[in-house]
Design a binder for these strands. Structure first.
Lengths: 219, 219
DNA sequence: TAGATTGTTAATCGATTAACAATC
DNA sequence: TAGATTGTTAATCGATTAACAATC
C-alpha cells in the first residue's frame, strides 16, 4: 500500500480536524482585517498552540506555505474548507422544537454558517404548525418523505434525553448521513456509515465546574 | 514531594474528567433502572470504551470497587459528583439574551442540572425588562453589582462573536470564576484564576461535516 | 472452592513539541 | 546576502490498552 492510500485510510486525526475549525475562525478574522499572509507563529499565538503544532497540522493538506512569507490566507481558508467539506451546502433539519431546538434553528440560520436549515420537527401535536423564523414545525411522521424530497443529509438532535435514541433511529432509517447530538445520551447508530458528533452542553458545564475547583486548588 | 501533593499538582487529566461526565449519565440511568452495582465492563460497553480505560479513570478517585461485584452505583455517583464539584449549587448568569442565550437559560433551568440560573443580561436596551421564563432581562451595566450581591460564580457567554472578548472581560473583572463560552472566539482571560470551557457549536457542525466525508471515503 | 472482577504495572499507541536543514 | 519561516524528522510526552496478580 502506498503512502497516499495509507493516508486516506487513516484520515486526518480528530484532534487536527478540531484545530482546523479554529484556524478557519482566525483566518477569516485576519482576512477581514485586510491581511493576505499569516505565519504558523501568528496562527499559533492567536490560539495558544505551538507553531510546530500548526505546521504539523497544515502538513496534512495539499497546500504549501512559502519560506519567509508564511501561508496565503485566502488559499489556506479554501483548502481547509474543502477538507472539512464546507464548500458544499448541506440541507439540515432540527429534530425537537423545544427551547433549544428552536433557538438552534434560528441561531445557525442567522450565523450564515453555510449550512441550510430547511426544516424543524416535533412529535408534540400542539407544536405542529407553529412558526420558527420562516420555518413551520412539522410532525415527526412527515420526516421520512421530507428528508427524501429535500435531500437532507444532516439532523440536529435537540430532543429530551428520553427520546434521543428513538429520534436517532428515525434519522438513520431516513437515510441521513450525519447527526449533531445535543442530548446527553450516547447514541448507538444502526449504520456505521452515519457520522455523529456530540455537543455536550451539560457535560461542558460540569467540566467547567471541575476546572473551577482545579484552579482553586492551585491548578 | 510526595505522591498525594504530586497528584494534586497535576490534577486529573482533562480526558478523564470528560469521561467522568459520561459515567455520571450512565450511572444515573442504571440507578433509575434499579441497579445497585456496576462493573467496569458494563460501564465501558455503554460508552464504547475499554474496561481498562474505565478502571484507570476510576483509580484517580478515593473510591474502590469490590472484586466480583464491581462498583456501588450510588457511592460512585457521589464520589464523581464531588470531584467535579457538583455537590454545591453554583449561581450562574447568561450573558446575551438572543435566541441562544434565552434558550440556554430555560433549557438548563428545566434540566435540573444542579446549577442555578439566576440572571440573564443584554446590552440592547429594547430587550431590557423582557421576561425569559421567570427571569427579567437586565442591562449589562447592572451586572457587576448583581454578581456581587447574588454570589454569581459562573457566566455563560452567548453573545455575538464580535462582543465575546468584551463580555468576557466584564465577567472576569466582576470576579466570576468560570466561563462557559458558546461563541466561536478564542477568549483571552485577564486572570489565570478563571476557568473557561468552550462549547463550539459551529465547530462541531464543521467537524461533523468532515466526519461525513471521511465515512464516504471509507473511513 | 472456582471464577469474576478489581487495581496496577508495563506496553503500546498517538499526539505534541523540539530541532534543524532547506529555501525564499 | 542575511535572516525568517517552512516542512519534516526525531524526541518527548501523555493517553489508552493489555496483562495479570490480588481478592472477594
Amino acid at each position: 500500500m502506498n503512502v497516499v492510500s495509507d493516508k486516506r485510510k487513516n484520515g486526518i486525526p480528530k484532534s487536527v480536524v478540531a484545530r482546523y475549525t479554529e484556524y478557519l475562525n482566525v483566518l477569516r478574522s485576519l482576512r477581514e482585517k485586510g491581511d493576505d499572509w499569516v505565519s504558523s507563529r501568528t496562527l499559533a499565538e492567536r490560539l495558544n498552540y505551538t507553531s510546530s503544532t500548526v505546521r504539523q497540522d497544515l502538513s496534512h493538506l495539499s497546500f504549501s506555505g512559502i519560506s519567509k512569507r508564511g501561508y496565503e490566507i485566502a488559499g489556506l481558508e479554501k483548502e481547509i474548507s474543502g477538507v472539512l467539506g464546507l464548500n458544499i451546502v448541506r440541507n439540515v433539519v432540527v429534530i425537537g422544537a423545544g427551547n433549544l431546538g428552536r433557538a438552534l434553528a434560528q441561531h445557525l440560520d442567522s450565523l450564515e454558517t453555510g449550512f441550510n436549515i430547511c426544516g424543524i420537527f416535533d412529535n408534540d401535536v400542539r407544536k405542529i404548525g407553529m412558526k420558527v423564523g420562516s420555518l413551520e414545525i412539522l410532525g415527526d411522521s412527515s420526516f421520512p418523505s421530507f428528508a427524501r424530497e429535500n435531500d437532507v443529509t444532516v439532523g440536529i438532535l435537540a430532543v429530551p434525553d428520553s427520546a434521543a435514541q428513538d429520534a436517532a433511529d428515525m434519522l438513520v432509517s431516513a437515510g441521513i448521513t450525519g447527526i449533531l447530538n445535543f442530548t446527553s445520551k450516547h447514541l448507538v447508530l444502526a449504520s456505521d456509515q452515519v457520522a455523529c458528533t456530540d455537543v455536550r452542553i451539560v457535560a461542558s458545564l460540569q467540566e467547567l465546574s471541575h476546572g473551577i475547583i482545579a484552579k482553586m486548588q492551585g491548578e
